[in-house]
């Protein structure tokens, strides 16, 4: 079998989750000034990439990430899992970049690695537009299969089980291609101590918007082509009655269902 070089797009996101995230009151964008970590959703793509390169008996995983402030903490986690190297796009001009702008940046960075396969998550944990993988594919002129819950590669072809509303489709696609993988496609490994130490010495190639040959006007707030006009608290749904089960808790449910005439 021939070597398989895989690019995995990994997003570095603020710690916490949607319950703890904050928006900047001025720009209405997500506050990203603290330490960033590897989006857990991307650990599945990293693991998938590592397994496919191992199965091919050659090739390596290159990470591609766009993040502010030369952030590498999340990249180090993925390098510790076993990725060989990373391309990091970091540039003050990128603040406020929307999904299409991000796709342009990632597509340009991915081209440098000349991969056989590009993996992403189905959606990021903080932005969750879910359109980025196909935008990247279109910009690179490649086919894509999104929502992959099973991925196998043989003889230059990828076989994918793709989630649908009713079940799943068996889809086949020739390489090179973009595949977005769900959480659960594989079980991500934990970085070993050896892996963590090795990651410190692995190359991270940091590039700017100009290095990628992109027009600064196509990215950042200026290139976004959309704006947030307001953020307001939603009408809160009030909590109702809470009862502690003492062996009769089920009767409360029966009574409730009777009251709303469901039974």
């Amino acid at each position: 079998m021939s070597a398989m070089n895989v690019v995995v797009c990994v997003k570095q996101i603020p710690e916490g989750d949607q319950a703890t995230y904050k928006l900047d009151p001025g720009t209405h964008t997500l506050v990203r000034d603290g330490k960033l970590i590897l989006d857990d959703s991307d650990s599945y793509g990293v693991e998938m990439g590592l397994q496919l390169a191992e199965q091919a008996g050659g090739g390596e995983v290159t990470l591609v990430s766009m993040a502010p402030n030369s952030e590498t903490s999340g990249l180090r986690t993925a390098l510790a899992m076993g990725a060989a190297k990373a391309i990091l796009v970091s540039d003050p001009a990128l603040a406020g970049t929307d999904a299409l702008g991000t796709a342009k940046v990632l597509a340009a960075a991915i081209k440098r690695a000349e991969p056989d396969l590009i993996l992403t998550a189905t959606e990021s944990s903080d932005g969750y537009t879910g359109t980025l993988p196909v935008q990247v594919a279109e910009l690179l002129g490649l086919p894509a299969v999104t929502f992959a819950k099973k991925v196998t590669v043989s003889e230059g072809k990828v076989s994918v089980e793709r989630q649908t509303e009713e079940g799943y489709d068996e889809v086949e696609v020739p390489l090179p291609a973009v595949i977005s993988v769900t959480a659960g496609v594989v079980e991500p490994r934990y970085p070993s101590f050896k892996g963590i130490m090795a990651a410190k010495g692995k190359p991270v190639d940091e590039v700017t918007v100009a290095d990628l040959g992109l027009d600064a006007g196509a990215v950042g707030f200026a290139g976004a082509g959309q704006e947030i006009t307001a953020v307001t608290p939603a009408e809160a749904r009030k909590a109702g009655e809470i009862v502690v089960d003492d062996g009769e808790g089920y009767q409360q449910i029966v009574a409730y269902l009777e009251r709303i005439k469901v039974i």
Binding site: G141, L142, P143, A144, G167, D169, E170
Partner: peptide, 16 residues
């Protein structure tokens, strides 16, 4: 479509 249209659905499974 060229390469972008290269994916093929071989079978569909309903799991409802």
């Amino acid at each position: 479509l060229g390469a972008v249209g290269a994916a093929r659905v071989l079978a569909s499974h309903v799991e409802e």
